[in-house]
Computed example of a mutant assay.
Amino acid sequence: MVKKTGRPGYLQIADELREQIRRGTLAPGDLLPSTNRLSEQFDASLSVVKMAVGILRNEGLVIGQQGKGVYVREIGTTAGDSPAATADEVAEIRASIKELTERLERVESQLSPPQSGKPRRSPRG
C-alpha cells in the first residue's frame, strides 16, 4: 500500500518491486503481476503503477513483451551485462587513456621548444 510519506507513490511502488527483485521474491523470468493487480495491491491508480514499472524498465530490471506482460529481466545472460565484463571494459578504457596521454605528452615534447626557465620576450621587444 502506498503510504502518505510525501514520497510519490510511483517511487514507493518502484522501491517495493525493486526490493522484491533483489530478494528473489520476483526471480529472473518471473511475470510481474498485471497493472490492474498491482493497482489493487498498492491501492494506487493505473497511471501510478505504469510509472513505477516504467522506472524499473529504465533501470533494466524488467522487460515488457507485447501482449504477454512484463517480466523480471535475466541479468548476466550476455557478456555486456556481466559486472566482470563491465570492470574489464573500464580497465581497457583506462589503459587506452593512459597510453594516449603518454603519446600526447611525447608529441607535445617534440613540438615544443625546451623551456629554459626564463620568461619569454615578446617579439616587439
Rank of each mutant, 00 (worst) to 15 (best):
residue 85 A to E: 11
residue 87 A to V: 12
residue 86 T to V: 15
residue 109 S to N: 15
residue 33 P to M: 04
residue 17 L to W: 01
residue 19 E to N: 14
residue 99 E to G: 08
residue 75 I to N: 09
residue 37 R to D: 12
residue 86 T to G: 13
residue 40 E to F: 01
residue 40 E to P: 00
residue 94 R to F: 03
residue 71 Y to R: 05
residue 4 K to Q: 09
residue 76 G to C: 04
residue 123 P to K: 15
residue 84 A to Q: 15
residue 30 D to A: 15
residue 109 S to C: 10
residue 117 G to L: 09
residue 54 G to E: 01
residue 15 D to A: 05
residue 114 P to G: 11
residue 110 Q to T: 06
residue 108 E to L: 14
residue 80 G to T: 03
residue 10 Y to M: 01
residue 48 V to S: 13
residue 15 D to M: 04
residue 86 T to E: 14
residue 98 K to W: 10
residue 77 T to P: 02
residue 22 R to S: 07
residue 65 Q to S: 09
residue 81 D to C: 05
residue 1 M to V: 06
residue 4 K to L: 10
residue 54 G to V: 03
residue 7 R to S: 03
residue 45 S to R: 05
residue 88 D to K: 12
residue 26 L to T: 01
residue 39 S to I: 00
residue 23 R to P: 00
residue 6 G to H: 05
residue 104 L to Y: 10
residue 110 Q to M: 12
residue 113 P to E: 11
residue 56 L to E: 00
residue 81 D to N: 06
residue 38 L to M: 15
residue 20 Q to R: 14
residue 6 G to Q: 07
residue 120 R to P: 04
residue 9 G to E: 02
residue 50 K to F: 00
residue 5 T to E: 14
residue 66 Q to D: 06
residue 41 Q to H: 14
residue 87 A to Q: 14
residue 41 Q to C: 09
residue 99 E to M: 11
residue 83 P to M: 05
residue 91 A to Y: 04
residue 44 A to E: 00
residue 24 G to Y: 07
residue 64 G to S: 14
residue 100 L to H: 07
residue 40 E to Y: 02
residue 84 A to W: 06
residue 93 I to S: 13
residue 14 A to N: 03
residue 120 R to D: 08
residue 83 P to L: 09
residue 90 V to W: 14
residue 49 V to F: 07
residue 19 E to R: 14
residue 10 Y to H: 09
residue 78 T to V: 12
residue 109 S to Y: 13
residue 40 E to M: 05
residue 46 L to E: 12
residue 81 D to I: 04
residue 41 Q to K: 13
residue 44 A to V: 02
residue 64 G to R: 11
residue 53 V to T: 04
residue 121 R to E: 05
residue 67 G to D: 00
residue 64 G to K: 07
residue 82 S to P: 07
residue 54 G to C: 04
residue 91 A to F: 05
residue 16 E to V: 10
residue 9 G to S: 06
